[in-house]
């Protein structure tokens, strides 16, 4: 079930805008931090994250590079698209196919959510495990356990399938006085 729905998500959803709540828990579960934000994407490989405070970070994948923009520091830096994908698995969902970077398999159903387990093919991808939940053909949740055993759960709300995304939202334009540092 999950895999079929994931394939539908990749075929039928060419763009989307969705709100998310991200809860990051320490490996022992004692410490938790929550952040809200918005995720937009346009296939084949453009996306944007707007993280609210305290992160207050903007991440733009313009198809060639990924821009990390920090309004607090008034600083932006770019990296090649493939360098960043491991630290932003959700960005992979905006990509052409998850199958290249992950081994995918059905991982059960819970309520109206169908789960897919994704194991990174690249061992040093900084991710221990990734699970994706879909509600029908829409992205519902994401669970990531990173290299240090920290658990990050993203719950998506208000999924706007095939939303119209203004092209300039998926392009980086520096703010006045912003320090811009190109590519590492």
């Amino acid at each position: 079930a999950g895999l079929d729905q994931l394939l539908r998500f990749q075929r039928e959803i060419q763009s989307a805008r969705v709100q998310f709540t991200q809860t990051v828990s320490s490996p022992d579960g004692k410490k938790q931090r929550q952040t809200r934000g918005q995720f937009e994407f346009q296939r084949p490989n453009r996306f944007r994250f707007d993280y609210a405070a305290p992160q207050s970070q903007i991440l733009i994948g313009d198809g060639k590079k990924v821009w990390m923009i920090d309004p607090d520091l008034n600083q932006a830096s770019s990296r090649a698209l493939d360098q960043v994908f491991s630290s932003t698995p959700v960005a992979l969902l905006a990509g052409a196919s998850l199958g290249e970077a992950f081994e995918l398999k059905d991982d059960g159903q819970s309520g109206d959510l169908a789960w897919v387990a994704a194991r990174p093919k690249q061992t040093d991808a900084g991710i221990q495990s990734l699970r994706i939940a879909l509600r029908g053909r829409e992205l519902a949740q994401l669970e990531i356990v990173d290299g240090l055993g920290q658990r990050s759960r993203m719950v998506f709300q208000g999924f706007e399938a095939n939303a119209k995304i203004e092209p300039e939202r998926l392009r980086f334009a520096p703010q006045p006085g912003m320090d811009v540092i190109e590519g590492q």
Partner: peptide, 27 residues
Amino acid sequence: QAGSALFELQGGPERGQIQLNSPLGTA
């Protein structure tokens, strides 16, 4: 090079700890 991280630092030079997280929450 440029980048940023969220940090939590406790203690002092003799005894302490530091946690560094990426701006997107990954440790």
